[in-house]
Design a protein around this nucleic acid. Structure first.
Lengths: 105, 105
DNA sequence: AATATATACTTCGTGATATGATGTATTATG
DNA sequence: CATAATACATCATATCACGAAGTATATATT
């Protein structure tokens, strides 16, 4: 997928990945990979940004001796997803504009 | 609209704006404003980038004493729009992932 | 036993890019 | 005669995705 197009979708994908149950970095990448690929560096950057923006909270947990950071969505994070749904109407109209065939030839 | 989301759509919107007939900066902004807002600095940056990528060609013309640069889409530019149409399927599946309600509560 | 792979998180540098601010110049409007 | 509209250009800035490289443990393979 086009890199620029991806940018607008990543944040919201990550939020969607933790929407129904808390998750952690590695799992988020796996869960999203079906829809959108992202590297670890990208993910952790996004998670930090979303945390800074109050969209999620973090909790560290020991899992078989390995550290895990579980991410939990907040009210703001859920609002962000709702915002995306609203924006979707605009995106659809843009799609229609871009793809409409004009018969003035 | 979310700034990041916009990024992925701008290039293709500009191409769509000159798809059916050559156009120039100011007119492109006006024509697109119904769907997506962009400043002059943004537009000219994009036009230069698209020109550099061979997506369009430029021709200067005098219009009532004022300079106008007319932009003409190339085969590559048209291909770029077609690419966007292909990517659309992925975007739809992402949208569905993000918005699907999960009943594990 | 040694090696490779999977899991898991972190930091750094780079390149791409949208945008506001600012500038130049002409024409139309009030 | 001043203001708005038309028209293009440049610069500095902030945001951001990503590859590369690093640290560390557990499991599978040879």
């Amino acid at each position: 997928m086009d890199a620029q197009l991806k940018r607008g979708l990543l944040d919201v994908c990550v939020l969607a990945a933790i929407k129904n149950e808390d998750s952690y970095g590695y799992k988020i990448i796996k869960d999203l990979s079906e829809y959108i690929k992202l590297s670890e560096s990208t993910l952790y950057t996004i998670l930090k940004r979303l945390e800074g923006g109050g969209m999620l909270t973090v909790r560290s947990a020991e899992h078989f001796g390995r550290l895990r950071k579980y991410y939990h969505i907040t009210k703001s994070g859920i609002n962000r997803i709702e915002e995306f749904k609203s924006e979707w109407k605009e995106i659809i109209s843009i799609y229609e504009f871009v793809t409409k065939e004009d018969n003035n030839e």
